[in-house]
């Protein structure tokens, strides 16, 4: 499996890139989350209704889901063998793809004021 030349070093490089991106993005999200006056619906829609916040949420979601998939792949490759490994990798990819689509939809709705 994954005998393509350069696949492993590309994986390594993108894991580092996403981890560096997640330092500011993760801190932004945590600080913004903890600074909200409340987490009522109107507050949350107002938060992500701002263009910059929607952009940051998009970047966070992309880096987070990518980094998450890479981390899960590494753990699965270390501890699972055979056909089960392939199955679990496909399931993880489907789950992350579905989450990316759901998150993209949610941010698009919130940023365009559709859920207010």
């Amino acid at each position: 499996m994954s005998a393509r030349p350069g696949a492993a070093s590309r994986h390594w490089r993108y894991q580092r890139l996403t981890s560096i991106a997640l330092i500011p993005l993760g801190l932004w999200f945590l600080v913004a989350l903890l600074r909200q006056p409340s987490l009522e619906h109107a507050v949350v829609t107002g938060w992500f209704g701002k263009p910059l916040q929607a952009l940051l949420a998009t970047l966070l979601g992309a880096a987070l889901l990518w980094h998450s998939m890479q981390g899960i792949q590494v753990v699965l490759e270390d501890y699972v063998r055979g056909k089960l490994l392939g199955l679990l990798l496909v399931l993880a990819r489907i789950a992350h793809l579905a989450a990316a689509l759901a998150l993209g939809y949610a941010i698009w709705v919130l940023a365009s004021g559709g859920a207010a």
């Binding site: 829609t45 949420a57 979601g61 998450s68 899960i72 753990v75 789950a95 989450a99 941010i107 919130l110």
Partner: peptide, 21 residues
């Protein structure tokens, strides 16, 4: 890291619910 992966899905679910209304 694995735990945060699961929590990432919770985050997506939370924002998706906010978008639904």
């Amino acid at each position: 890291g694995l735990y945060l992966s699961v929590c990432g899905f919770l985050f997506v679910g939370w924002l998706f619910a906010a978008a639904l209304g």
